[in-house]
Amino acid sequence: MPFPPPSRTPRGVRRRSLIVSAASAAMLAGCSAGPDSAGSGGGTSVAARARARAARDSEGLLGQYDAVLAAHPGLAERLRPLRAQVAAHVAAFTEGAAAPASATASASASPTVPADEKSALAALAAAERGLADRRAKALLDVPGELARLLAGVAAAGSAHAYLLTEGGK
Rank of each mutant, 00 (worst) to 15 (best):
M1N: 10
M1E: 09
P2R: 07
P2I: 09
F3H: 13
R11C: 03
G12V: 10
G12Y: 10
R14I: 10
R15S: 15
V20I: 14
V20W: 08
S24M: 15
L28S: 07
A29C: 11
C31Q: 13
S32R: 11
G34L: 03
G34I: 02
P35F: 00
A38K: 01
S40R: 14
T44A: 03
A47K: 00
A47F: 02
A48R: 14
A48F: 09
R49A: 12
R49Y: 12
A50Y: 06
R51C: 01
R51L: 14
R56M: 07
R56F: 10
S58V: 01
D66Q: 15
A67W: 00
L69F: 11
L69I: 08
A70L: 13
H72G: 12
A76Q: 13
R78A: 12
L79M: 04
P81Y: 07
P81E: 02
Q85V: 08
V86D: 06
A91Q: 14
A92I: 00
F93S: 00
F93Q: 03
F93A: 01
G96D: 07
A98T: 11
A98F: 03
S102F: 10
S102R: 15
A103V: 07
A103S: 02
T104A: 14
S106W: 06
S110W: 13
P111K: 06
V113K: 01
E117D: 13
A122P: 11
L124I: 05
A127R: 11
R129P: 01
R129A: 13
L131Q: 07
L131M: 06
A132P: 08
R134L: 04
A136D: 01
K137I: 01
L139P: 03
L149H: 09
L150R: 05
G152M: 01
A159N: 08
Y162V: 12
Y162K: 05
Y162D: 15
L164F: 06
E166F: 08
G167C: 09
